[in-house]
Simulated scan of single mutants.
Amino acid sequence: MNARRRVGIVATQASWDRYVGEAALKRLSALAEIVWLEFPGSSRTLSPPPADPESMARLAAFVPDLDALIVSHGAPRITAGIMAAAPRLAMIGDTHGDRFAARVDVAAAKRACIAVVDTTNGSSDPVAEWALALILLGLRNAGAHFRRLIEGELLWPDRDVFLKDPGYLNGELTGKTVGLVAVGNIGRRLLELLAPFHVKPLAFDPYAPAALAGVYDLAFTSLDTLMATADVVVCLAPLTGETKGLIGKAQIEAMRPGTVFVNVSRGAVVDSSALVARLQRQDIIAGIDVFDPEPVPVGSVLRSLPNVFLSPHIAGVTAACEPRFFDLMVDEVERVFAGHQPRFPLIPRDP
């Protein structure tokens, strides 16, 4: 039966070259015949190309004998009409959907009893690692030390000055209270990385299963309580209509002096003006990988503040993680073809 199955991949040439690894392709070949349909397009956008008649006709002609369809950058939107043209289709997978369902009509798939999967979480590991790095850098006030060193300053000629440094006073992560704003795939991986430090984890996530509290020994709390009590606040919330501006002026002002604030999610989740105003008082430290607007404007005060460590939205960008998107998708095809439920069903972030 498996030999008669067909898996179609719809993507740009660039996506195929960067994300489709040989080992995963070999595993998929053992499950089914693989066919590929190339479309032009950007390798960095989540939005599908315009649904022009020619593209939709090419796609409709490609899908009739498919058992699974994997889409990525460049693929047109998989509509109810496309699904109707593929009576054998059991699964649609988007390797770069970022849980927004830009390329798949999830409601139509549900009506057709087609599983829909999103493996964008392939980049969760490096994002969690970079979040941990920014936490450690912030606690040690490393950004300020680095700035002073490269400017040629001879640090600590008077050791009494060092005794007042935040990195000396609050520099250890062990035992700290760490607040996570959202505990999705990245948050759960970060909790694993934090475990050896014996932190006291707090989390705000109204959509997280309550069972996670027992699994990770964390306390769910309100956003206001988290912001006011955590030694370290890590923003991991996806950007949706509901989360835009979630961390506003009141929440930013609630952070106690000495708090380390880290954002590796999306800049617009945070009120940028309120954050900059608080950072200018230099009583908190920030590690910022994302900002609104992005990139950080050349003239922004953030670029010169000693209590801010900046990185240019690199948390999830590593060569090692790119093949993982497709590798996880092959895992999902294996599960669905075996009659199991997928591990990463696509539940859109916004209606």
Rank of each mutant, 00 (worst) to 15 (best):
Q13K: 11
Q13D: 06
Q13H: 11
A14V: 09
A14Y: 05
W16P: 03
D17L: 07
D17Q: 07
R18D: 14
R18C: 07
Y19W: 11
G21R: 03
E22H: 05
A23Y: 00
L25R: 14
K26A: 15
K26H: 14
L28K: 04
L28N: 06
A30H: 10
A30P: 01
A30S: 07
A30E: 11
L31P: 00
A32M: 07
A32D: 06
L37H: 09
E38H: 13
P40D: 14
P40K: 05
P40Q: 08
P40S: 12
G41F: 08
G41N: 13
S42N: 10
S43Y: 12
R44C: 10
T45Q: 15
T45P: 02
L46C: 04
L46F: 11
S47A: 14
S47R: 13
P48Y: 15
P48L: 14
P49Q: 12
A51I: 06
E54P: 04
E54Y: 10
S55I: 07
M56A: 01
R58D: 12
R58C: 08
L59A: 09
L59M: 12
A61F: 02
A61E: 15
A61C: 05
F62H: 02
V63Q: 03
V63G: 08
V63N: 08
V63A: 10
P64H: 13
L66Q: 10
L66Y: 09
L69P: 01
I70R: 06
I70T: 10
I70W: 08
S72L: 02
G74P: 07
R77K: 15
R77P: 03
I78P: 06
A80V: 05
I82Y: 04
I82W: 05
I82T: 02
M83P: 03
A84L: 00
A85T: 08
A85L: 05
A86M: 03
A86E: 09
A86D: 06
P87L: 09
R88W: 06
R88M: 06
L89W: 07
M91N: 04
M91A: 13
M91F: 13
I92Q: 04
G93K: 06
G93W: 04
G93A: 15
G93Q: 01
D94F: 02
H96A: 14
G97D: 08
G97Q: 06
G97R: 12
D98R: 04
R99L: 13
F100M: 06
R103W: 09
R103E: 10
R103D: 00
D105M: 04
V106G: 04
V106P: 00
A107R: 03
A108G: 13
A108F: 03
A109R: 06
K110T: 11
K110E: 14
K110C: 03
I114L: 11
A115Q: 10
A115N: 10
V116C: 11
D118K: 02
D118M: 00
T119Q: 09
T119W: 05
T120S: 15
N121P: 02
